[in-house]
Design a binder for these strands. Sequence first.
DNA 1: CGACTGACAGATATTGAAATCTGTCAGCTG
DNA 2: CAGCTGACAGATTTCAATATCTGTCAGTCG
Lengths: 197, 197
Amino acid sequence: MPPTSETLTAERILEATEEVLRRHGPAKATVVDVARALGVSHGSVYRHFRTKAALREAVTKRWLDRTSGQLSGIVAADRVPEDRLRDWLAALFAAKRRKAGEDPELFATYMVLTDENGTAVGEHVTDLETQLTRIIEAGVETGDFAATDPEASARAVFQATGRFHDPCYAREWEEPGTEADFAAVVDLLVQGLRRAP
Amino acid sequence: MPPTSETLTAERILEATEEVLRRHGPAKATVVDVARALGVSHGSVYRHFRTKAALREAVTKRWLDRTSGQLSGIVAADRVPEDRLRDWLAALFAAKRRKAGEDPELFATYMVLTDENGTAVGEHVTDLETQLTRIIEAGVETGDFAATDPEASARAVFQATGRFHDPCYAREWEEPGTEADFAAVVDLLVQGLRRAP
DNA sequence: CGACTGACAGATATTGAAATCTGTCAGCTG
DNA sequence: CAGCTGACAGATTTCAATATCTGTCAGTCG
C-alpha cells in the first residue's frame, strides 16, 4: 500500500481496513496497521472514526450491505412470486456459501466482526426480512399465497431457513446432502405458504 | 465430595465429572479435580476412561440422552399426529430454553462440550429426527399429512426449527417476540405437511 | 484555519519461564 | 491378583514482565 497522496476520506480508510483485516485477521488488525497502509499517522484515522469499534462497525455494515444489495434485484424480478421466493432463498444460500467456501479465513473474520456488532446485523436481518415481505405480499396479491400477515410469514421463512444462511452453520454447508436438505425445507415452506386450492 | 468408600465405577466418575464441570467450568475442569472429588488418585480415573476426551464425551452423551429421553414420551402419546408434532416441538424448545435460562454457565459448559464432540451431537440429532419421523409417519397413516418421504420431512422440520433448539441461538430465546416467532414457524411447517383437503 | 502529526497515559496483548496437567506404568496393598 | 497409587516425561496452561495498542491533544505545516 503506497501512500497515495489523495485526500484522506472515510471511504479510503474503509478500503484500507478491509485489506488489513484480510491480511492480518480480526485479532491482529490494529488501527496503527490501517494508518500505516494509508501512509498516515493513526491520529488521522481517529479524525474520521471516533473509535476502533466504530471503524469495525462501518466495515461490517459495508460488507453486509453489499450482500443485501445483490439480493434486492431478485425481489423486483419479473417472475411468479413462488419462483421469486425460491430464487431469492437459493441466491441467499449460494452467496453465503460461496463467501464461506472461497475464502474461509476472511469469512471467519467477518463472523467475528458481526459477532461483536449486534446492531449492524440486526439491521441487515431487518433489511432481508423486508425484501422477503415484498415477495410474499406479491404472492398474496396474485392469490398464490395465503398469508394473512406477510411480514410475520417472511420472518418465519427467514428464520426457518437459518440453517442455510446463518454463518454459524457455515462448516456444514459443504457436507453431502446439504442441497437436498435445502430443497426439502424450501419445498415445505412454499407448500405451507400456498393457498389451499 | 467426601471420599465415599463404595467401589469406583464409571457411573460415579461421570457424576463427579458433572459436578466438577458445574463448579469449575469446561476450561478448568481437570481429571485431577475429578479424582480429588472422588477421593482417589487420577490414575484410577484413567482405568475407566482412556483419555480425558473420552470422559468428556461420555458426560456429553449422558446429558444429551437425558434430553431425548424426556421427549420420547410425547412420540408415543395418545393424540392426533398434528398435536403430537406441535407438542414435541414445543417441548423441545421449552426444555432447551429452560436449561439455558436456568443455569447459563452450565449451559455454556455443555455448549463447549458438544462443540468439541461432533459425534455425540450427530447421534443425538439422528435420535431426535427419528422421533420426529415416527410422528410424521403416524400422520401419513391417518391421512393428516401428505409426506411422501417422512424421514426427509422430519429432517426438514428439525432443521427449520433450529432457531428454537440449537444452542447457538440460546441468547435470543429470552427476547420478546420469540414465542410468536416460534408459533409462526410451527404453523407454517404444519401447514406445509398437511394434506390438501 | 483546518488537516495532520507524534508524544503520551492507560488499557490490552505478547512472551517465555514456571507451574500444572495428561497419560503411563512399575510397584504397593488388601 | 485386581484395583489402586504416585512418580515421571512431555504437553499444556498460568502469570508477570514487557511490548504494543488505543484514544487524546497540544503543537506543526501548508
